[in-house]
Nucleic acid binder design. Structure first.
Length: 917
DNA sequence: ACTGATACTTAGCAGTGAAAAC
DNA sequence: GTTTTCACTGCTAAGTATCAGT
């Protein structure tokens, strides 16, 4: 009875909370978008927000009886609290260095020194890598073998291409060198690292520039070589799967003072990409494509110029009639279809080629393992081919949002049922052994196995967990267990550790066995049949129950994520093909909606979000979308010059919202910021461009020798900190001052802008353009740019790998892809340092020996003593080298510790770029 | 214009297996 | 053979974008 009552109360409470939340967001948005009485509105809104926040805080405090950070507050005190909290959190969960990066100087000096050393070391590094030439040769041989077949076919195209390429290349080269310094500076400074790092970069740059001087000369000569080796491949590869290569042909030249972007588009390169591998006549393709492009861009050109004039006027967003836009749309789609059809032909071999490419990418990375991977890959490939090669690009594409015609699958796999703990694993409360009911125990194990995790040290996590845990308890248990601190999960924790240990120590056969079992499950449930073709499903396993691990300061972290039952799951498939639900259960719903790509969905209980079972990234649906993404980036490349011009004009627009939009667009374009949708209050407080608040930026007329510096400091997606000091155009700076005028730190910087408005605007400039395209575009551009800059055709393979990784890193820095410092980092660093120290010692000893030996020579000048000197000399040299190597390793690791390369590799870097390069 | 719902992409973390180092 | 390192992958949270209903 008690429980019933509790529950009703609970529900009512929730209801009220929800209502509360609704009204809150109403306020928020009303203040955001109605600007007639903006001042008053804002004040009122602020008051309300404050009040809401305070209320909530009070509630929370009561609940928790403890300090808690306030969410987004406009009061300085609150803010500083939050900052403190944030710092605290970060110190724990992320690198200490990161924060100190920006603020502590001693550490930085140290780093400075390290980096200087590193610069020197890099040269050495290269030398060393050259020694690995053997590997390179082996690699070459293999590549040759692979290439030989294709080469014959390409040879024809190549010749034609080459002459064209040369001209282009020459032009490009000129521009490149002209702009490189400026660009370099800009790109680097936009890479959101602190000023100290920038200084280092300057040095680095100086060094690089010097190198480049040399490079230029070298490069000019072996141009033919470029064409002959990597370029050939580039053209060929790119031809059949054109995505990015072109991006690097947009030369963004940025005038340092005014930060004016300019583009010099080189259409021909696009054309080149369209060129299919063999058969098709090159020139013919060139012609057609060019025509297509003019057709394609024409309709966009007209409204753009019109728009430009409108821009300076007033009502602009609504000025372009929907019907007019639709017309454009249809025209564009027709042209693109033509284009696509052409491409489809080209991509005929895409599957194969793609595989090949992947292989190659690996090959460059891992020379030694290449052989094995190739073998396995080939196997995989063969299997796949046996299964099917779906030439989806040859099929007619439905335009009306239909994603499939038939869809069959076996339904998702549910998490295995809970295995109760063995009797000897006990839970203690207040020192006493308590036998928990199964459900309670299950939730206890969720927590118990996380005992070593940072999460369990967080107040929010613990309160949320405990609250939810108590909900699953029986009333008796609830009465007894009232304090989490008195709970002892240590045996549970030890049990799971033991289990994973045992798991690791299994014999090979056992591991093989489980692997085979897993494989079986994948074979059965991991595939679906879509339009008659078998395709891999991405996440066919439904998320198991556990504790919600929100990132950053997520208010819901620690809540219990319920076990999903078939009754929660909606199945989407062709009519009459629904898989049967697990025995004794039934689906929540079976539907047949072919306008969506998901196979099953359920609503998760913590955030109320819908989760989907979708296809694997390699499936055609995903592949096509991915391809479209890069296509959009390519399209943007053509438009970006105009867009830049336009938003630069808009800096001085009369209307505030136009100005805000222009500045926001500038940030998105230049810094690759995310769009910044609005968020609910029950999520971690993070922002993107449009949701930036006044507190997230600071302005300095001059800072570190740069004028008009904007300093960004905010938490972005996944609560990753974004810190960047960047010099902007004067107009942008002045505008920002205006935007910030009369606002509280907690107020929106762009109070008349949101992502919808921005995207609507972008979509008018170019069909399908959204804020995130800029990120893709920027990342691709940077990769190409960096590769161009860093690579030298004469480089050894190892050097090239280094260059590639550096380019990759540049992209990761641009996109602010960070990671927590690996847990083992400190330890492995320590090990390395110990090694370095040991090496130093032996070196010192060897040097001493050398001295002694020299003395000996002076004294006796005997043959033997001379030989001894030589020997000592050699040891010293060798040791020095070794030491240097270790030190380089250390600095490199240090530099890389908080940059996540994987994400950019996965989502922004096209395999073709790597291959082409 | 606002809102909530929906669908899909992007992201970091953790676990794992294999290679490298010892 | 053992330990350490590293890259890969699966998982799932957290974004972006759009749409329909009001």
């Amino acid at each position: 009875m008690g429980t019933m009552e509790n529950e009703t109360i609970e529900i009512r409470k929730e209801h009220e909370e929800k209502k509360d939340g609704d009204s809150r967001s109403e306020h928020k948005s009303s203040s955001k978008h109605k600007h007639k009485d903006k001042e008053r509105d804002r004040d009122r809104d602020r008051e309300r927000k404050d009040k809401d926040r305070k209320d909530r805080d009070r509630e929370r405090d009561k609940d928790r009886g403890d300090k808690e950070k306030s969410h987004s507050s406009s009061k300085d005190k609150d803010r500083s609290d939050r900052d403190k909290d944030r710092d605290k959190h970060r110190d724990k969960s992320r690198s200490d260095e990161k924060m100190t990066n920006g603020h502590s100087s001693s550490k930085d000096k140290e780093k400075d020194r390290e980096r200087k050393d590193r610069d020197k070391d890099r040269e050495k590094d290269r030398e060393r890598e050259r020694e690995k030439g053997k590997d390179k040769e082996r690699e070459k041989d293999r590549d040759k073998e692979r290439e030989r077949d294709r080469d014959k076919e390409r040879e024809k195209d190549r010749d034609k291409e080459r002459s064209k390429d040369k001209d282009k290349e020459r032009e490009r080269e000129k521009d490149r060198h002209k702009d490189r310094d400026r660009k370099d500076k800009d790109r680097h400074s936009s890479s959101h690292k602190d000023k100290h790092r920038d200084k280092d970069r300057d040095k680095d740059r100086e060094r690089k520039d010097k190198e480049k001087e040399g490079d230029k000369e070298r490069r000019e000569k072996p141009k033919d070589k470029i064409k002959d080796e990597p370029k050939v491949e580039e053209t060929a590869e790119i031809a059949e799967f054109p995505k990015h290569e072109e991006t690097h042909n947009v030369r963004i030249t940025e005038d340092e003072d005014t930060s004016v972007f300019k583009t010099e588009t080189e259409e021909i390169v696009d054309v080149k990409q369209e060129v299919p591998e063999a058969e098709v006549d090159v020139t013919a393709t060139v012609e057609t494509v060019k025509m297509e492009e003019t057709i394609e861009s024409d309709p966009e050109d007209v409204p753009l110029s019109k728009r430009k004039s409108i821009t300076n006027g007033t009502d602009y967003d609504s000025d372009v009639p929907l019907s007019a836009r639709k017309k454009i749309k249809s025209e564009v789609t027709t042209t693109t279809t033509v284009k696509k059809q052409k491409k489809r032909k080209i991509e005929d071999d895409e599957d194969e080629e793609y595989e090949e490419k992947k292989k190659k990418k690996k090959a460059t990375k891992k020379v030694k393992t290449e052989e094995t991977t190739t073998v396995t890959k080939k196997k995989v490939k063969k299997e796949e081919e046996n299964v099917e090669t779906w030439k989806w690009w040859e099929e007619k594409k439905e335009d009306d949002g239909v994603k499939w015609r038939t869809l069959e699958h076996k339904g998702p796999v549910f998490a295995p049922p809970y295995e109760p703990l063995p009797k000897n694993v006990k839970f203690y409360y207040n020192g006493k052994h308590i036998e928990l009911t199964q459900d309670t125990e299950e939730v206890a194990t969720f927590y118990g196995r996380m005992l070593d995790h940072d999460y369990t040290a967080k107040e929010q996590f613990n309160t949320n967990f405990f609250k939810d845990w108590r909900k699953t308890m029986t009333s008796a248990e609830r009465e007894l267990i009232t304090d989490l601190k008195k709970c002892d999960f240590s045996e549970i924790n030890a049990y799971f550790k033991r289990r994973s240990e045992e798991n690791k120590n299994r014999t090979k056969e056992e591991k093989q066995k489980t692997k085979a079992e897993n494989e079986k499950v994948i074979q059965e449930f991991g595939f679906c049949t879509i339009d008659g073709h078998k395709q891999r499903i991405g996440n066919f396993k439904i998320e198991p129950p556990g504790l919600f691990r929100g990132r950053g300061d997520h208010p819901k972290m620690g809540m219990v994520k319920r076990r999903v039952m078939p009754e929660d799951v909606i199945i989407n498939c062709s009519k009459g093909t629904a898989p049967s639900a697990p025995a004794g259960h039934k689906w929540k719903e079976v539907r047949s909606d072919n306008t969506v790509t998901w196979l099953a969905s359920w609503t998760e209980n913590v955030q109320g979000q819908v989760k989907y079972v979708m296809l694997n990234a390699a499936s055609h649906l995903k592949g096509e979308r991915d391809w479209n993404k890069y296509e959009m980036a390519r399209k943007l490349k053509k438009m970006v010059g105009k867009i830049r011009e336009q938003y630069q004009m808009d800096y001085k627009a009369k209307e505030m919202r136009v100005r805000q939009r222009a500045v926001a667009l500038y940030f998105i374009d230049k810094l690759a910021l995310r769009a910044g949708n609005e968020k609910d209050e029950d999520q971690a407080d993070t922002v993107g461009c449009c949701s930036l608040r006044v507190e997230h930026i600071s302005l300095d007329e001059t800072k570190n020798g740069k004028d008009f510096v904007v300093t960004f400091d905010f938490l972005g997606k996944d609560s990753i900190r974004y810190y960047n000091e960047i010099s902007v155009e004067k107009r942008v700076f002045k505008n920002l001052q205006i935007f910030m005028d009369n606002k509280q730190p907690g107020d929106d910087l762009f109070d008349r802008l949101n992502t919808t408005i921005l995207n609507k605007h972008l979509n008018e400039i170019m069909e399908g353009l959204t804020a995130k395209v800029f990120r893709t575009y920027n990342a691709s551009f940077t990769l190409q740019d960096q590769l161009d800059k860093l690579t030298n055709p004469d480089d050894s393979l190892a050097e090239k790998i280094l260059a590639y990784n550096r380019a990759n890193r540049a992209v990761a820095i641009l996109c602010n892809h960070q990671r927590a410092v690996p847990k083992t980092f400190a330890k492995s660093m320590e090990n390395l340092q110990a090694k370095i120290d040991a090496k130093k010692e032996t070196l010192a000893e060897a040097e001493k020996n050398l001295k002694d030996a020299k003395k000996e020579v002076k004294r006796s000048a005997s043959q033997a003593s001379k030989a001894a000197v030589e020997k000592c000399q050699k040891t010293v040299e060798r040791l020095r080298e070794q030491l240097q190597k270790l030190e380089v390793q250390a600095t490199d690791r240090e530099e890389n510790k908080e940059i996540a390369l994987g994400t950019s590799k996965l989502n922004y870097l096209d395999p073709r770029i790597s291959v082409a390069w």
